[in-house]
Computed example of a mutant assay.
Amino acid sequence: MNVSVQWEGVYPALLTPFTADDQLDIPLFEKNLNAQLEAGVHGFIIGGSLGEASTLLNSEKIELLSSALAVSAGKVPVLVNIAEQATKQAIACAQDAERNGADGLMLLPPMRYPSDSRETVTYFKSVAKETSLPIMIYNNPYDYKIMTTVAMFEELAEFSNIQAVKESTRDLTNITRMRNAFGDRFKLLGGVDTLALEALLLGCDGWVGGLVDAFPQETMAIYDLAKAGQIAEALEIYRWFMPLLELDIHPKLVQYIKLAATATGIGSEYVRAPRLPLIGAEREQVLNVIQTALAKRPVLV
């Protein structure tokens, strides 16, 4: 039985932990999931950019899905990210996720090929037609060079299962633009850690987080305080968090956030090639950011 996806709250874009011999580290994955649940997150997203989606076999994504569903035990929805080059393959992955119990999907535009507006809309519609699962469109022109505009969402609005947007344009005015155009037709979730509080205060329904993988309690505190209107209290934690949140907007965000999760005891540094673990001065610099933050870690009420 699928868990209803409300598209509100904090949804970690989960790390994919590996063993030293490049296998999925399911026990560590489940340790992280339990830490997230204990903190009160509202859902899980498997196989996003932070989850090293481009290096995962589809069978591995299904193994991660199975594990997350078992740990969640119906408490929160489990979403699978779809990031494929071919429309046919995206549909196949969506249907495979649905068959294996996923509660929803996050859907990127076509990978590698910079599709134009007509092609992008057709791609999204083609996937939406072939699954009954609720879908969140990932709008990230900064990294993926394809902008899903208000006009394009007007075309997508006819599909009732296209329900939410991961807002990663890095243009905060786009939140207001989407609200003005659609009201509450699409749920909006901020997708850039360094703009997360601003996005929530501008009316986003949730936060798809990265550093939540290492700091779930602090992430949830900011979300809860913001939604309760306790802005000064949220801002105090957010300012402490910012040097860590900036790890999310670097090309090596996977290595950086895995190092942070290792420091907090719920992750490891192993990554899948072509990524390599951090070494030398770069590793020391990131560790310094993490250790400095840990030394001043706020006491949460």
Rank of each mutant, 00 (worst) to 15 (best):
S49P: 02
E218M: 02
V286K: 05
A181F: 08
P110F: 10
L65P: 13
M147N: 15
N32W: 06
G47Q: 03
A232Q: 10
A39K: 00
H250A: 10
N180M: 11
A68P: 07
I26Q: 01
G203S: 00
E154V: 11
Q6D: 15
A90D: 15
V41D: 01
Q23F: 07
L33K: 02
K166W: 08
M1E: 09
E84K: 03
S72V: 15
L65R: 04
A228Y: 03
K187H: 15
L244P: 12
E60N: 06
F29C: 00
E284F: 02
G74P: 07
D96S: 12
L259V: 01
I175N: 00
N288R: 14
R275N: 09
I137P: 15
A128C: 01
L188P: 13
D21N: 01
A226I: 05
A228P: 00
Q163W: 03
E282D: 08
E158I: 10
L105W: 10
I82T: 03
V165W: 04
V71R: 04
N34A: 07
L188V: 14
T169F: 09
E284N: 12
T173M: 12
E52F: 01
E98Q: 14
F182D: 08
P17I: 00
G104M: 12
L56Q: 09
D25Q: 04
K227Y: 09
G183W: 11
G47K: 07
Q36N: 06
L211F: 13
G190V: 15
G101E: 05
I162K: 05
D21T: 13
P216S: 07
G47M: 10
L300A: 14
A20P: 08
L14H: 05
T131I: 07
A260G: 06
L278P: 00
I135N: 07
Q230P: 01
E52D: 14
L201A: 04
L259T: 13
R99W: 03
L294N: 14
E52R: 05
G206R: 09
G48C: 03
Y223V: 10
G47N: 01
L244N: 00
P114H: 03
I231N: 09
K88I: 11
K187F: 13
D21F: 01
M242V: 14
L300I: 11
A39T: 12
R283T: 11
D184N: 14
V5W: 07
R297D: 06
